[in-house]
Amino acid sequence: MTGELHGRSWAAALYRAATAAALLLAGAMIAAPAFAADSSASAMSDDAFRRLSRLGAERPEAAVPAPPVNVTLTLANGAITPSSATMLPGDKLVVVNDTKTRQFVWGQRVNYAFDYRATPDDTFTHEPGQSLAIALTLPGIYQIGVVADPHMRATVTVESPR
């Protein structure tokens, strides 16, 4: 008697486990093609979404890269403003010379540096009033400086791509 009861209990448990495994396997078979080509959620096709939505899935938001932006620093009154800024790789760092003299503007990140020379003349980068832009692609913390005035400094952080 007891054995029969135990036997029915085992059979019921086995049936429930088999049902759960079958459901899991079916879900995996539907979902697998959606991620086969690209593991990112943004690569999910409409067809895959329709199939997954039957199981109650919600479409994840696609990862759209932010368009490049300009970050502007201004030289004026013996300072660079703002004194710090953050940008993403590919954004342009614009430097505006709002002084009355030619300036030489440089940036340095440990063992990589750049400057805004645009002509064969090595003695300056910016005419008075001139605005020049350079796209920065290498992540890191840059010190931006003006040769003629060691107090004119700013810090620009180019963040690593997320």
Binding site: Q108, N111, A113, F114, D115, R117, L132, I134
Partner: peptide, 11 residues
């Protein structure tokens, strides 16, 4: 020790 790029004149 350092590389200096001058993007606006390509040097």
């Amino acid at each position: 020790i350092i590389q200096v790029d001058v993007p606006l004149r390509g040097t």
